[in-house]
Structures are given as C-alpha cells and as structure tokens.
Nucleic acid binder design. Structure first.
Lengths: 359, 359
DNA sequence: CCGCCGATTTTGAGCGGTCAAACGATCGGC
DNA sequence: GCCGATCGTTTGACCGCTCAAAATCGGCGG
C-alpha cells in the first residue's frame, strides 16, 4: 500500500514537470514569480505525484520550526476550561499552517530555554499565568515570540496578552443581581494571589460601591473545590444577616455554595442567588442549573494566534534585543457573558447580549 | 541577552574541543565509539558553549520527526478523562525524547495522510476509538507506527492497543453490590455502539448471570449527560419493582441517576446504590460522593508509549507492507479500580486492592 | 622491522528543501 | 541594430546534522 520508492521529493516533481527544483519551490512559496503556464504544469505534477514538502527540510532551510509550544501542567486538579482552550488553540494554530507542540516540565523556563536552543518551536503560548510570572520577562529578553493567555501582576507586562475582563464581569453580576432586588451580595473568592482573583474581587467591590451596597461579605476559599465552596458558605451563614446572593469565582466553589444553601433548608435562586464562573460541565449538575459567566474561549484562541502572527516583525540578527524589541506589547481584554440559569435567574439587558454576541 | 552570533552549531563545538564534527555527533549519539578522554573533553565543550543540537537538522538527517501525533477532537462535550490522558501522555512521550504534536481535522485520515506525507510525525496515538474504526487499518497498511488507546470492534484489530477491562470492572461492581445484598441491579449504558459500551454491558450481564440475578433492568441513555441519566432513571423507576442498585457507564449519567433518586424521595447509597465511571471531578459534587470506577490513566499513557517504542522494528524501504509488518499486534487490558463513596458504600476485597495497586 | 588488526577519528556525501546570485530570453527605446 | 531592464528560470551554496566509507594510529605477532 505504501507508495513505492518512498516519499516524493521536490526533485522528482521537477523532473516530472520538466523544470528545475527551484521553480517547483517557487510555485509553492512564491507563485507570482512563476509563469502561469509553468505554474499550472508544476501544480499538475504536484497533484499527480502527491507531493508534500518535507517539513523538516523546509524548516531547516527556512530556519523555522512550524511549531508553537504549549506547556501542559501535570496537576491533580485539571481545568476543563484550560483544556477547552487548548483544543481551540490547536485548531487556530493549524489554520495558520503550524502545529501545537506540547511539553511539560516543572521548571518551566528551563523547558523553554531547551526548546528554543534546539530550535524546536517558533514561539510559545503561555497559560496559567500567575501574579509574579518570570516567564514573560525571560522570553522577551531572549527575543522569543510568545503570547500570554492571562495577565501577570507585573507592572509592565512584557509581550502581548489576552484576558477576560473579570472585573467588568463581576461588576455586571452585581448590577444584575441588584436588578433582582438583591442587596446583600457576598463574594467567594480564591485565596491565590492571581491577577484573575484580584480583578474579580475588585469588580465585585466596585459594583457594590456603585450601588451603595456593603462590600463586607467576603470569603476567600482555601482551594478551588466543591468542599471549599461549602466551607466558605458556612462562614457566610454564620453572620447574623445572611446574604441574599453569592458570587463565586469558579463553578466548583459555586456548586459548593449551592449545596450548602440547600443543606440549610434555603432555596437557591430564590432565597440565595448563586453564580459561578466558566460555565463548566459542573454548571449543569446542580438542580435548576447554575448561573455562570462564560468566557469567550474561541475568541481567546483566535486572538492569541493573531497576536502571535503579528509578532513576526523580529528580524533575526538585526535587533540587539536591547529594548525588548518594539513589538508594541499589546493587551486584549474581552468581555464574559452571563449564562442565566435557575441558581440566579438574572434577566440580561439588551446591552449584555449585544456585547456578548459581538465578541 | 540573546547569545550573540546566534545558536551554537556542532562545528563550533568541534572546533572548541579540537575534534571533528562527527566526533561530537558520536559523543551525543553513540558515546561508546568515542575514547573516554575525548568524550569528556567534548562534553565539557558542549557544556561550556551551551550547545543543543538543532532538532530540524538532526531529524532531517536521521529521517525522523521526533514527534508523535495526537488528534484532538473539537467537540462540545469534552472529556476531562481524555484530557487527563493527554496530559500524562505528554509527559511520557517527553520522557522518550520526543514530543506530542496536536492536530485537528474532521476527516481524520486525511490529516494522518498529510502529516505522514510531510514527515511531520513518527507515529500516532489514537484515542476515541469507535467500533468500526478505519484509522487502524489505514495506518497499518501504510506502515505508520501507532498505538491505539481503546479497542475497535473490528474482529482483528490491527496494531497494538491499550484498554480498560470494562467488562471485568462491571462484573466486579455487580459482585460487590451483591455482597451488599443488592439483588435488583440495573444498568444504565450508552447508546453509542462503541466497544466500551458493549464491553461494560457484557460485564454487567455476566455478573448478573453469575449470581442468578435478573439482567433485565437495562436502559441505554440518549447521550452522555446528567439529564440523560435522570431520564434513564425515571424509566427504571416506572417498573413495579424498582432497582436497589444502578451501574451507570459514566459519571454524568450516574449523577443524573443520583439526582433522580433523591427527587423521588429515596436515599442514594441506602435505598438505591449508584455507581459511575472514570472518577471524574463530577464524582465529588454529589452529596456523600459518587462511587466510581477509576481508570489507570498514568499506566495507560506509559503503556502506550512503551508499545510505540517497540514498534520501531519497521525498516523503511525493506518491508513491502504486505503482511502489515510483523509487529505482533499486541493488546494490553488493564483493570480499573473501584473508588467507594457514599452513593454505593462498597467494601473492597483484599484482591480488589491488590489488583489496583499492582496496576 | 613489517604487515595486519581493531579502536578512533576524520572525510565525503547527502537528507530535502530555501536563498541569493547568475543566467538566458524577451523587449522597448534610442 | 545594439543595450540595459525585466521577467522567468536555473545553478551553486548552504541550513546543521548523520551515515558510510576512508584514513589514522598504536599495538602485536611473526
């Protein structure tokens, strides 16, 4: 079954079409330089022989890798959200003619250094950013193209990034819950000092302040689990005036809150509204459904790849890497969309919907 | 910051160490051919210059790709289980000196053909196998190394594979539930005719037969969701004698069943035992926890890579591919482990534990 | 002292492409 | 009718490494 004589090379195509190897190469990479008639003839030969250029050879000569590195964390608590992002990223990268290369390694920067030294990748997509993230600086200093999915807390974050506007999302949640007549809106945040956590907290506070609501019902959960959410809710129920709404920064936490609400004989969505984040599979397991903030993941993936493409301005030997190259360190902030379900029967405004649709 | 003069090449190392380029190459790829003293000297130079061989060049010369292809499905219902497998696979592949390359594409075989033609990968890891799966045959016919995670329903499945012994797992569940005194053990299966579904169904039936229990309480769920699980349970509750145990083939289905049990005012784990599969994050959202069959994912990943390594017997131009090459199409069946929680307080036997530990 | 051998090391020839410069037509302009 | 510009195509060199064959070098038996 396998094609006899092994894979077809560019020389065979050249022979078949009666031209030189370089002409074939030109037809593939710079068609405008080739006479239309020859072009057609070569294309026919390519077709007839089923020629596909050898990636390694092409990349070696062109000093590319055709690959984008992505670090997958080996963790006990995988995030379905990040995995979805990876799926979509794979598709987007593929559309740009390259592929995603996966790697692990606990000392992530070493892994980066290694891949770069081996010329194994053209660039990286960074995920799971934390507040003090050394990766961005390192990559920028070494003139390695990259795009960050998520912001760091570093004042001047090097390199382009894409992120959810978590503050705006939380602000809006407060807004809509206020529309429903809720006035004691609590917040269950994450303990980790990630930008994400800080931003969402900020948005909640801002929202409360905007409506003259007290912003004192605040618990930071130990970790991102259903149990921790339950524990957080018990804390909140300890006070004399219990909240009539709870914004949790994740679906697991929200599910925990939800469960605790029921355990106390209260009705979620009626007595206490509960909202989560990410619209994960978990959101459909609670009775009545969980209201959650959905992130525009497809858009994230697309934007990341777009930004990566436009980072190709780095001339190899020219720039001394002194000023971290001039690739205008752009940042893109995208809005989240509220998915309203039983746990918090929010009525979305026209504007909410438009913003989400136009994302 | 970036090393001036670009990346170090093998010639520079050779020069530095006072040997020829080939000697450096040998130190790296066949150390035994090099005099220990020279070896040390070269190694020192490699270290001093921070040399890392260029992957593209190496692969081009050696006719390898250093990459293993893995197809990620773009689906609306991602499986956290498959994603976990991918994470672990990444780590294992990395240990073998290669990397995972991700790709998508709905016409999967075309994608395979393309990657192979471009010499972009050395082989593939197949996942999400279905009953009539054309991929295995195609790859075998084209002498492309691959390992399948999951069996197909094709009588003689080409190529090596790894899979969970789902039949044994279900049989054992029946066994343990019987130990608990359950005698009306229902089965909520999947409608899709995957080997997985068929095997699990078979195991349940066999278990029931072995204990002289009726194997007639059977529902096949529409799809793999919580809702479908609930619907399935309602079906089961329609009969005059309701089941006292339900084995569901997935956690989402089990959660649906669990929820329905409560809605009917019954106590899960007491009135009706409920079990799921995969020990997914969902298993911890139900009150009391969900008893579930955990798959040995790490082991799967390791085995897959091991099998892939041992497929390197294919000589390039020699074999005509006539007899699908002689790589003894091995299959590896691994046992699952029952994780006992509130929804079905199973007591595991010594043997159960041993089997799982030794996995 | 010489030829032969095995262990080491080096050289030559690619792997399959791309880049850059050289080449041969064609062509309008003077 | 000769010349430089233009277009299209070809040639030479090389990307950075590995493979195979050739070259070098002691050491050893005769």
């Amino acid at each position: 079954m396998a094609r006899p004589g092994g894979p077809v090379t560019i020389r065979q195509v050249a022979l078949h079409a009666g031209v030189s190897r370089q002409t074939v190469s030109n037809v593939l990479n710079a068609p405008h330089r080739v006479d239309p008639a020859t072009r057609r003839r070569v294309r026919a030969s390519v077709e007839a022989l089923g020629y596909r250029p050898n990636r390694n050879a092409r990349n070696l000569a062109a000093r590319r890798a055709g690959l984008i590195g992505y670090h997958v964390p080996i963790t006990d608590t995988p995030s379905s959200f990040m995995d979805r992002f990876l799926h979509l990223l794979t598709a987007e990268v593929e559309d740009s003619g390259r592929h995603v290369l996966l790697f692990t390694g606990t000392t992530e920067i070493d892994a980066y250094a290694d891949l770069v030294a081996q010329r194994a990748v053209d660039g990286f997509v960074l995920a799971n950013t934390v507040e003090e993230d050394p990766r961005h600086r390192w990559l920028a200093d070494h003139d390695v193209p990259f795009v960050s999915f998520g912001r760091t807390g570093n004042g001047e974050q090097p390199g382009p990034w894409v992120d959810l506007d978590g503050a705006a999302a939380c602000h809006r949640l407060v807004d809509r819950l206020h529309d429903l007549g809720r006035s004691r809106i609590a917040f269950v945040g994450g303990r980790g000092r990630t930008v994400q956590n800080l931003e969402r907290l900020r948005g909640w506070k801002a929202g409360c302040t905007a409506f003259d609501l007290p912003a004192d019902r605040l618990v930071l959960a130990e970790d991102d689990t259903v149990e921790a959410g339950g524990a957080a809710m018990r804390d909140l129920l300890d006070s004399e005036v219990i909240p009539d709404a709870v914004i949790a920064v994740s679906d697991p936490l929200a599910v925990g809150v939800h469960r605790e609400v029921r355990r106390q004989g209260l009705r979620p969505g009626t007595d206490v509204a509960v909202t989560g984040f990410d619209d994960s599979p978990l959101a459909s397991v609670v009775d009545g459904g969980l209201t959650s903030v959905r992130q525009p993941v497809e858009r994230f993936a697309r934007t990341v790849v777009d930004l990566l493409e436009s980072t190709n301005s780095t001339t190899t030997s020219a720039g001394r890497g002194s000023t971290t190259s001039a690739n205008s360190d752009r940042g893109v902030l995208l809005p989240g969309g509220i998915i309203s379900r039983g746990s918090a029967p929010i009525r979305l405004t026209e504007q909410d919907l438009n913003e989400w649709e136009s994302r």
